[in-house]
């Protein structure tokens, strides 16, 4: 067992070597941790995304469980249908995990995702967010941040709208459990995954998974940038129970300016000082709002 502060996780890998991910792949790292928790207790559903490739091209596979691929907008509904179908044939034990990118979650799959969340289907939905359509070579999604460049928001017309606030949307569905996590904090990520596996009903994990190819950074920067996103409060780590009660998982001790996060990435090369100031202001405002929410309605779990 791998001893961590938050739990014991197996040394055994449920994600195999020799997979198809790029060097420094954030999504590959996230799933390696996730499947250490879900092991062989869950079927994994993957819509079109980087993981369509990482899971292996016929006849290969990289995960030690049943993986089912499905069309781009269909993952949430296919996942919920698998769970219902398993129950119908007498298997109430096997869980179902959807593993979708930000494109499938924030954009094309939003309707089905909202449907399963509203019906509180017994499903664990994981969104690995690399903030653009990376599998097809970096086109903007509604998860792309303000001011970022992509092949469909090329210089000098960087993305002019802010990142869609997916956690607020999911919380508004009053689902039993939602949490953010990051590949820079594996113990926290696995603890949240474990908690999510124990909850009945619809669960949502939003995992920050940098893409060095798409962001224009050296491949060894994945974890550093993921950590800086948390420390600068761009991507805070927190949990939401029943869409109402909040708990912040990690309080950055010092206030690190977002500049430290932005400077290592070519996708932000077009941002001028006034735009950076605007972005900093929004980050500070969001953090303050999150702190108020957590103080006002704290989430106290059983564990």
């Amino acid at each position: 067992m791998l001893q961590t502060l938050l739990g014991d996780f197996p040394r055994r890998e449920y994600m195999l070597n020799g997979h198809n991910a790029c060097a420094g792949c954030g999504p590959a790292l996230a799933v390696r941790y996730l499947v250490k928790v879900s092991r062989q207790e869950a079927v994994i559903v993957i819509p079109a995304s980087c993981w369509s490739i990482i899971a292996g091209v016929e006849p290969f596979r990289s995960l030690e469980t049943v993986v089912l691929h499905c069309p781009f907008p269909a993952a949430a509904s296919v996942g919920a249908g698998i769970k219902k179908g398993l129950e119908a044939v007498g298997d109430t034990r096997t869980q179902v995990i959807v593993l979708a990118g930000d494109g499938a979650t924030f954009d094309i799959g939003m309707q089905g995702l909202s449907g399963v969340a509203e019906r509180n289907e017994d499903l664990l939905y994981v969104c690995y967010d690399n903030e653009a359509y990376m599998n097809t070579g970096t086109q903007r999604s509604s998860a792309s941040p303000y001011g970022s460049l992509s092949t469909t928001t090329p210089a000098p017309r960087a993305k002019s709208s802010p990142k869609k606030e997916i956690m607020k949307i999911m919380a508004a569905h009053r689902i039993p459990y939602a949490a953010t996590a990051s590949v820079a904090y594996p113990a926290d990520l696995m603890a949240k995954m474990q908690r999510a596996m124990q909850v009945k009903g619809f669960r949502f994990l939003h995992i920050f998974t940098p893409c060095m190819q798409g962001w224009g950074s050296p491949v060894e920067f994945t974890v550093r940038l993921a950590r800086l996103a948390v420390l600068t409060r761009i991507f805070p780590l927190y949990e939401v129970a029943d869409g109402a009660r909040y708990r912040i998982s990690s309080f950055p001790e010092e206030h690190i300016p977002i500049e430290e996060y932005l400077q290592g990435q070519k996708r932000f090369a077009g941002l001028d000082e006034s735009q950076k100031a605007l972005l900093q202001k929004e980050v500070d405002r969001n953090w303050a709002a999150l702190c108020r929410q957590a103080d006002h309605s704290p989430f106290i779990s059983d564990d």
Partner: peptide, 11 residues
């Protein structure tokens, strides 16, 4: 999509 999932499960 839901039925595709359920049919995969064998229902």
């Amino acid at each position: 999509a839901y039925l595709i999932g359920a049919a995969y499960a064998g229902a």
